[in-house]
Design a binder for these strands. Structure first.
Lengths: 191, 191
DNA sequence: CTGGAGCTGTGACAATAATCACAATCCATG
DNA sequence: CATGGATTGTGATTATTGTCACAGCTCCAG
């Protein structure tokens, strides 16, 4: 048996997406492969795409004085983009790249108008998707606002253990807002 | 002369809102007054409203072990709500209350269907508004992810000086993720 | 199989922020 | 305009995290 299909992932975005819109949205997407380290969205360019990860994962990071601060990891079945850039047509301050060799469904907004008869459904889906992505991101933001570094790690351990299995300690450290040394020590002392 | 009208504030949410939709949206809103300290959204209840501040300000906070952590201040001309609660019909983990005596335009989703002929426009506006609110909130989140406490204060000083004029040091401290003593010391040492 | 690049763990020390205590100041109200 | 509660400033101390240095480990590529 195969895993979940692109249609299933689209449905998970909102239970209010009409079933008859799914084929239109699937037809809009393009499947592409990216080698580990390949940049999908480059700092300084305007983002025009959503990404749905089918295999591997995508890493979103901010360049602070030459050091990378990870803001997001997107795994199989999840969507990502840079909404600030996409919505405001602003140059991206973030980079999105493949963290492993990846297969990704690309939803390109510039290809949207070339699909007459689908536009209204696509626009509606895009708005729902945008809110969905932001609400997921808010959870990560709240780690910083409400918890201490140790509490953040325990939260991930409990609610997102996939991260611990697939992301290296150094990469995870910047995602949690601590140095790799501190994260190593947090991880060391059990409970 | 009066200040800006509710219609002007609605237009600022997105420049793609059709001018002819504005009157429908204005008619949907209800003006209400709240005394300082009055709770508009109570922890544990499902949020069904958007708020547009006309006068005064609203404060959104999270209750962590009995202590309030401020997550948002909404001033004149800006919108707020709890999108996680509103979108998912989940009990709110946050409280929204009047930080000063306030006059607020309330957009109640349950009153929406009672306005036949406006529903499509309202739904469209609500989606745009939701994204707008999240993108504004993201800026605050990035303060925590990318900057040190001192950098956060300098950022607010430069980009949001209204906060420094209208919010007490103790309230601002939790918004910046430091103790009031630390914020006092940051403020003390000039440049 | 082995050398080396890139992780990770850990000790010593420095820097930063929290905590605790209390004095000074602000300011609303009688 | 006096006064008491709330807010802010500041010192002393503790706790936490960052920085630096280096050793050990892992795991490919040759």
């Amino acid at each position: 048996m195969e895993g979940k299909s692109i249609g299933d992932y689209i449905k998970k975005v909102s239970d209010r997406i009409p079933a008859e819109d799914i084929p239109l949205l699937v037809a809009w997407a393009e499947s592409r492969e990216f080698k580990k380290g390949t940049v999908l969205l480059k700092e300084g360019t305007v983002c025009r795409e959503f990404y749905l990860v089918e295999k591997g994962y995508l890493r979103t990071w901010y360049n602070k004085d030459g050091a990378a601060i990870n803001l997001n990891f997107t795994f199989e079945g999840a969507f990502t983009t840079n909404l600030k850039s996409l919505n405001g047509r602003l140059p991206s301050e973030l980079t999105i790249e493949a963290g492993e060799d990846a297969r990704v469904w690309v939803f390109n907004l510039d290809l949207r108008r070339e699909r007459p008869g689908s536009d209204a459904q696509i626009v509606l889906f895009v708005r729902r998707l945008a809110l969905h992505i932001m609400l997921v991101a808010e959870e990560h933001s709240n780690l910083f606002k409400l918890y201490t570094p140790t509490e953040r790690y325990r939260y991930i351990e409990k609610n997102n253990p996939t991260l611990l299995q697939r992301i290296s300690l150094s990469q995870l450290a910047t995602y949690l807002g601590v140095t790799r040394e501190t994260l190593s020590r947090i991880r060391g002392k059990k409970v």
